[in-house]
Amino acid sequence: MAAQHSQGIQTLLEAEKEAAKIVQQARQYRVQKLKDARTEASKEIDEYKKVKEEEFKAVESSHAGITSSAQSAVDKETEVKLQQITDSYNQNKDKVVKKLLDRVVLVKPELHRNLTKVES
């Protein structure tokens, strides 16, 4: 009976070892599948990124002419306005200086309009 009992325990230990091997193989299989999935996802991301970059470059190149023409139009308009401001400055600077000097030099002393005469 002891031999039979010992053989039953031995069979259980072998079954336990076999189960541990199966569990270890399942873990390895799961880890490998995760690695494969990450690699595949990385490839898909890279392909998608490449496609979107090409689309962006195509849109950018198609709008490059529009942007440069708009920039040149804005530059021309700015030049015209700056020239107008410069011309106006050159025409009116003497008048402005004369008005400022007249205000500073020619002072007419008079009472303020809010000042009331105090009766004594």
Rank of each mutant, 00 (worst) to 15 (best):
Y48W: 08
E53N: 02
E40V: 02
E18Q: 13
S120H: 11
D94A: 13
Y29I: 07
H112S: 08
A64R: 12
V31E: 11
E18S: 12
D46E: 14
E79F: 13
S6N: 11
D87K: 01
K98D: 02
V105H: 06
K17T: 14
K108E: 04
Q24A: 15
K98M: 10
Q84S: 05
S62T: 07
S42I: 07
K35V: 05
P109S: 09
S6I: 09
A20S: 14
T116H: 09
G8W: 10
Q28W: 13
K99A: 04
N90P: 03
V51F: 11
L82S: 13
Q10D: 10
Q71P: 00
K35S: 00
A64E: 12
F56Q: 06
E14D: 15
K76E: 09
Q10S: 08
Q32E: 05
E60G: 08
H112C: 06
E110Q: 08
T67P: 00
I9N: 09
A19S: 00
E77T: 01
V104C: 03
F56G: 01
A19L: 13
A64T: 02
E119H: 06
K52W: 01
D102M: 00
M1A: 14
S68Q: 09
V96F: 14
H63R: 13
A64M: 10
T86S: 15
Y89T: 03
L13N: 10
F56R: 08
P109T: 08
S42T: 10
T67G: 04
Q32W: 03
K21N: 15
I22E: 15
T11R: 07
K81Y: 09
K52P: 00
A20M: 15
K52A: 08
E47D: 15
Q25A: 12
A2G: 09
V23S: 12
D75C: 01
H112T: 05
H63S: 12
T116A: 10
I45M: 12
T67W: 03
S6C: 06
E14I: 14
K50H: 08
S61K: 11
N90L: 14
A26T: 10
E54G: 03
